[in-house]
Measured scan of single mutants.
Amino acid sequence: TLFEALYDYEARTEDDLSFHKGEKFQILNSSEGDWWEVRSLTTGETGYIPSPYLAPV
């Protein structure tokens, strides 16, 4: 399942991933609570992002 960003987000740590509203992601790991490890389909980068900022496509 692909997810889309509902809002912009600016990374706060080196493990976070900055992204823009509308960017699409592949979920790599969603078992860590509200922070999911994802791969951006736009940039190819991986990192953690807050799951409340995402919605299924």
Rank of each mutant, 00 (worst) to 15 (best):
T1D: 13
T1H: 11
T1I: 13
T1R: 10
T1S: 11
T1C: 15
T1G: 12
L2G: 02
L2I: 15
F3W: 15
F3L: 06
F3A: 06
F3Y: 15
F3C: 07
F3V: 07
E4K: 06
E4R: 05
E4Y: 14
E4V: 14
E4C: 08
E4L: 08
A5F: 01
A5Q: 01
A5I: 03
A5H: 00
A5D: 00
A5T: 05
A5V: 04
L6F: 04
L6W: 06
L6A: 04
L6Q: 07
L6I: 11
Y7W: 14
D8A: 06
D8N: 08
D8R: 02
Y9H: 07
E10K: 11
E10Q: 12
E10T: 13
E10R: 10
E10G: 05
E10I: 13
E10C: 13
A11S: 12
A11M: 04
A11C: 06
A11W: 02
A11I: 02
A11G: 12
R12T: 14
R12D: 10
R12P: 10
R12V: 13
R12L: 13
R12W: 08
T13P: 05
T13D: 10
T13C: 15
T13N: 14
T13Y: 15
E14W: 09
E14Y: 10
E14F: 10
D15P: 06
D15E: 12
D15G: 15
D15W: 15
D15H: 15
D16W: 11
D16I: 12
L17T: 04
L17E: 01
L17M: 14
L17A: 03
L17Y: 06
L17R: 03
L17Q: 03
L17V: 07
L17F: 14
S18E: 04
S18K: 05
S18Y: 03
S18F: 04
S18C: 05
F19I: 08
F19N: 00
F19G: 02
F19Q: 01
F19T: 04
F19W: 05
H20R: 14
H20T: 13
H20Y: 13
H20K: 15
H20V: 14
H20S: 13
H20I: 12
H20M: 11
K21F: 05
K21N: 03
K21Q: 08
G22Y: 05
G22R: 02
G22V: 00
G22H: 05
G22K: 03
G22F: 05
G22S: 04
E23G: 01
E23R: 00
E23I: 03
E23P: 00
E23F: 02
E23L: 01
E23V: 02
E23Y: 04
K24C: 08
K24Q: 13
K24L: 15
F25M: 04
F25R: 00
F25V: 03
F25K: 01
Q26A: 09
Q26R: 07
Q26V: 14
Q26D: 07
Q26K: 08
I27T: 03
I27Y: 07
I27D: 00
I27G: 01
L28Q: 02
L28I: 12
L28N: 01
L28Y: 02
L28C: 06
N29P: 02
N29Q: 08
N29D: 12
N29S: 12
N29V: 07
S30K: 12
S30P: 07
S30M: 14
S30Q: 13
S30D: 13
S31V: 10
S31T: 12
E32Q: 14
E32I: 12
E32K: 13
G33D: 11
G33L: 10
G33N: 12
G33W: 10
G33I: 10
G33A: 13
G33F: 09
G33M: 10
G33R: 11
G33V: 10
D34I: 13
D34Q: 10
D34K: 08
D34R: 07
D34P: 09
W35D: 04
W35N: 07
W35K: 11
W35Y: 11
W35G: 03
W35R: 15
W36H: 01
W36S: 01
W36D: 00
E37A: 08
E37G: 04
V38G: 06
V38H: 00
V38L: 01
V38S: 01
V38A: 10
S40F: 03
S40C: 08
S40K: 13
S40R: 13
S40M: 05
L41Y: 05
L41F: 06
L41A: 05
T42S: 12
T42R: 13
T42E: 15
T42Y: 08
T42M: 10
T42N: 12
T43V: 00
T43Q: 02
T43N: 06
T43D: 02
T43M: 01
T43S: 10
G44H: 06
G44E: 04
G44C: 10
E45P: 00
E45D: 09
E45Y: 09
E45F: 10
E45C: 13
T46F: 06
T46C: 08
T46K: 09
T46Y: 07
T46R: 11
T46L: 07
T46Q: 09
T46G: 02
G47T: 03
G47N: 01
G47A: 03
Y48K: 12
Y48P: 01
Y48A: 03
Y48H: 08
Y48E: 02
I49H: 00
I49N: 00
P50S: 09
P50R: 11
P50E: 09
P50N: 10
S51M: 09
S51T: 07
S51Y: 13
S51P: 13
S51Q: 07
P52Y: 15
P52K: 15
P52A: 15
P52V: 15
P52Q: 15
P52N: 15
P52G: 15
P52F: 15
P52S: 15
Y53P: 04
Y53E: 05
Y53H: 09
Y53T: 07
Y53W: 09
Y53N: 08
Y53C: 15
L54F: 07
L54Y: 04
L54S: 03
A55T: 13
A55I: 11
A55F: 09
A55D: 08
A55K: 13
A55N: 08
P56A: 10
P56K: 07
P56L: 08
P56F: 05
P56W: 04
